[in-house]
């Protein structure tokens, strides 16, 4: 309550706002937008910040218009949407499993998507849409399998993470097998896909991801308060009238779909889902799943990383997934280090 403000109207409407959390979300959103504009301006045909904004609002030259709308905007949108989806999904998994390791990278969803994509690449030499479909199916199937295997009168945090880790190990073995079976071209294509990249994305990747986000993000946010109650333990939440298992099932299914959709569009981008909720919580200093802040952190992290990778290594030399892994990992280590020095962990 220390940092909360309440907005009330006469009709009995009352909404609570954590002041700091709201500010953090605003700043993150602004950061994501700035990074997006910078990213659009980056490439073989560089554009100034002002040019990009002018083109986006419809006043650019035809050439600028083509570069922005057909080439670079889809890439940025995939980055923003995938980052949002991954950040939100990570927050859901970590909240439900009450474990910071309960994130899609660790519990085998990324590996499931990869197996799906690799099956299509290696066995059928499928085109990109088929690969995306395979990845989506792989992610959803592995999510369902983890849920079913971890089920014992409801899904419990640690069992869920452990089953997920076992699942990830099995799927990693399958990935290794598929890669050794593949011929050289397929293997190279598969490896590139596995790192996760925003390069060469077009509107065909944007549309399904946008649809998934439009449906699933509000669904998850609508369950935010119930999720927050779940963090006090199942019994307490249940006593307070939270439909525990239904909340868990709905939010986890949504998170699996979000992860699978993001992965299908951009490949298994490392670390965003794991780091974004942790970073968001430390930025907002608010307990609870911090869903909106985690989603914004994910988007900002991914787009900034993509922009950074192009600035540092040149256009499309380093896939963004490699950089998010490094960036996010370093930042998290630094955070943990400073917190340990402050005696908080």
């Amino acid at each position: 309550m220390k940092h909360a403000r309440t907005l009330r109207t006469r009709g009995g409407l009352s909404v609570r706002l954590e002041t700091r959390a709201a500010l953090v979300v605003l700043l993150l959103a602004a950061g994501a937008l700035a990074a997006s504009v910078a990213l659009i301006g980056t490439g073989d045909y560089p554009m100034t910040f002002a040019d990009v904004v002018r083109t986006l609002t419809g006043d650019g030259t035809p050439a600028q218009d083509f570069v922005v709308h057909d080439l670079r905007l889809p890439r940025v949108l995939v980055g923003l949407l995938a980052g949002t989806a991954l950040g939100l999904a990570g927050a859901v998994f970590q909240s439900v499993s009450r474990n910071p390791l309960g994130s899609p990278d660790v519990i085998g969803l990324g590996q499931g998507s990869t197996v799906g994509a690799l099956l299509v690449i290696v066995l059928f030499q499928g085109d990109p849409p088929a690969v995306a479909a395979g990845s989506l199916a792989g992610g959803v199937l592995s999510g369902a399998a983890i849920y079913a295997l971890a089920w014992k009168k409801g899904v419990q945090g640690n069992r869920f993470v452990l089953v997920g880790i076992a699942m990830a190990a099995i799927l990693t073995a399958v990935i290794g097998y598929l890669l050794t079976k593949a011929n050289l071209t397929d293997a190279a294509r598969a490896t590139l896909w596995m790192v996760g990249s925003l390069g060469g994305r077009d509107w065909d990747q944007v549309r399904p991801l946008l649809l998934a986000c439009a449906v699933l993000v509000p669904l998850v946010l609508g369950h935010g308060r119930a999720l927050r109650m779940l963090e006090s333990g199942d019994d307490t939440a249940y006593a307070l009238g939270v439909p525990v298992e239904r909340t868990r099932l709905v939010t986890m299914a949504a998170a699996v779909l979000l992860t699978a959709a993001a992965t299908a569009a951009a490949g298994p981008i490392a670390f965003v889902a794991l780091a974004a909720p942790q970073l968001a919580r430390r930025l907002t200093r608010t307990p609870g799943p911090n869903l909106i802040a985690a989603a914004c952190t994910g988007a900002t992290l991914l787009v900034t990383a993509d922009w950074g990778s192009q600035q540092l290594f040149g256009a499309d030399r380093l896939p963004v997934g490699a950089l998010t892994g490094m960036l996010g990992g370093c930042y998290l280590l630094w955070l943990l280090f400073t917190e340990r020095r402050a005696g908080r962990i």
């Binding site: 927050r228 006090s232 333990g233 019994d235 307490t236 249940y238 006593a239 009238g241 609870g288």
Partner: peptide, 18 residues
């Protein structure tokens, strides 16, 4: 669930403070 929770409260044996 919410209707019951407005009539009947429970303090469980173990609760976790977030």
């Amino acid at each position: 669930a919410k209707k019951v929770a407005r009539t009947l409260g429970l303090l469980p044996q173990s609760s976790v403070a977030p």
